[in-house]
Design a protein around this nucleic acid. Structure first.
Length: 460
RNA sequence: GUGAUUGUAGCUCAGUUGGUUAGAGCGCUUGAUUGUGGUUCAAGAGGCCGCGGGUUCGAGUCCCGUCCUUCACCCCA
């Protein structure tokens, strides 16, 4: 029986073992989100293609999954386009919907549509899958989950500081050694203004982003191409520091920006963020990286990026401040800031570094065993009472030999087996064995709860 | 989108210059053992060699296409 079926490229099934771990990551993040006052929303997987198109740049548009119209999707199609395989024209004719590419644009749409009912600043979190028609590779999937928290409708730098703390709490809980890099779009603008005309800013930013992977020197030809003078190259190279974020570093930087108000503003913002997060949680993992740019060009202020130490898998979190995200949906001048955890990559990091603990609290604790219909009925009754007491348990479904039933318990990691045979039924008792400690005996059903989950462990 | 790479039993993998009936380990089923698991021993089941075409007397093996895997680029979580 050969498996002729296969998964769509870049998608994955998750078995129980993996799901328990994914749920654990999700739960850890969700708890932190909630503790900072973020409230959940969900939006549809499917959006109008118009909502998504043009929000992610030319590259992003190519990566959008489009959904073929229902019914006769060829109605109204220009035969010339068909004949000439003019797929770009066709796509928007025959596809009016698409799968969401991230959670930020749907949020912007949501806020614009529901602005009357929302309390501002609106703090929401959202944990849902997103889809990108990318070629899969390490740490990159076509379907993956993002866990976003955003604050809409406030320019307060307090939220940037909150995010720094929140990020630290999540990764500390998960046991991941990380490095949080910050930058500010205003600082980038100030640097760019030093060397090149404003219209080259985007190209400049894309180049800076590459410095993460390749050395400055290999990019020199491209820097020249966008108009950086030969004499300025060394100056730029010295400028692009990566250092621990401290007030001393920011002070130095601010002096270097004496020519640029924007630059000074960016420094002041980072200084405020530093002060605020340090008040609640000093953090040694925060760095200032002046070449951190991030491709998404809607960012206007602080930029966040987190990488795991000791694993090469790209960033596991990204985020930043944007001043006009909802503008295209008819709600201008609303400032927001947000971050996004990539839990598929976080999973890969934890898997590679062996950071997953056994999550035994989620497993079945006891298995009821028996030999015949009478015993099964007896067990069925007892099981429901200990289940009501909060003990995860299950009743063996068939009448098989005891070793089989033990094997089942063993392979599911069930600690206790409870046996009801002729003897036990006659005396109104039940036999038990702990597969880990080998402790065994016979007791009354009413005492099972205390046996399996003693008060001392319950903390009562 | 560009360039590579992979696919043989449930899993991990052998399979010679193309040559009878495609193998191993682990796992699975049954028994030794009809109320006490993980060990041991014995027997057994399980494969259209990813799919489609081609070359050949003959293809798991060579060629072409396609799908999935993995990886780099682009870009990103």
């Amino acid at each position: 029986m050969k498996n002729k079926t296969s998964l769509a490229k870049g998608t994955r099934d998750f078995g129980p073992k993996i799901m328990l771990r994914r749920k654990y990551i999700l739960k850890t993040i969700e708890t932190e989100f909630q503790s900072y006052g973020f409230l959940p929303i969900e939006t549809p997987a499917i959006e109008q293609l118009d909502t998504l198109s043009g929000k992610y740049g030319e590259e992003g548009d190519k990566l959008l999954f489009k959904i073929l119209n229902s019914g006769n999707y060829l109605k109204g199609v220009d035969p010339v386009d068909l004949y000439e395989s003019n797929y770009k024209n066709l796509a928007h004719r025959i596809c009016e919907k698409g799968l969401r590419y991230d959670l930020t644009v749907p949020l912007a749409r949501f806020v614009a549509m529901n602005r009357q009912e929302l309390v501002f600043p609106f703090k929401r979190y959202q944990m849902q899958p997103v889809w990108r028609a990318d070629r899969p590779q390490k740490g990159r999937y076509r379907e993956f989950w993002q866990c976003d928290a955003d604050v809409i409708g406030s320019g307060s730098l307090l939220f940037e500081a909150d995010f720094v703390n929140l990020i630290d709490q999540v990764f500390t809980k998960l046991g991941i050694s990380y490095r949080l890099e910050l930058n500010n779009r205003k600082i980038l603008e100030a640097i760019a203004n030093r060397y090149i005309p404003a219209e080259k800013f985007t190209e400049f930013v894309i180049l800076l982003d590459k410095l993460d992977k390749v050395s400055f020197d290999t990019l020199v030809p491209e820097f020249r191409e966008i108009g950086i003078m030969e004499k300025d190259l060394d100056d730029l190279k010295d400028f692009l520091i990566v250092e621990k974020l401290t007030s001393v570093v920011l002070e130095k930087l601010r002096k270097a920006f004496s020519y640029s108000e924007k630059g000074i503003e960016g420094c002041n913002e980072l200084l405020t963020v530093l002060e605020l997060f340090t008040l609640s949680r000093p953090n040694e993992n925060v760095f200032l990286n002046l070449s951190l740019a991030r491709g998404l060009d809607y960012y206007t202020g602080t930029i966040f990026e987190v990488k795991a130490k000791n694993v090469s898998i790209g960033s596991i979190l990204g985020g930043g401040r944007y001043d006009n995200l909802t503008g295209v949906f008819g709600l201008p001048d609303v400032s927001g800031v947000g971050i996004s955890f990539g839990i598929d990559r976080i999973y890969d990091v934890m898997d590679e570094l062996n950071l997953f603990a056994e999550h035994s609290e989620q497993k079945t604790k006891a298995l009821f065993c028996h030999f015949d219909e009478k015993g099964r009925k007896y067990n069925q009754k007892i099981s429901s009472s200990i289940r009501s007491a909060g003990i995860f348990c299950e009743v063996y479904p068939d009448f098989k030999k005891l070793p089989k039933q033990f094997d089942y318990a063993e392979s599911k990691g069930i600690e206790w087996v409870l046996i009801s045979g002729e003897q036990e039924l006659e005396n109104g008792t039940i036999s038990y064995k702990n597969l880990l400690t080998k402790e065994q005996g016979t007791t009354e059903p009413a005492k099972l709860i205390e046996l399996i989950h003693p008060k001392s462990e319950r903390g009562e």
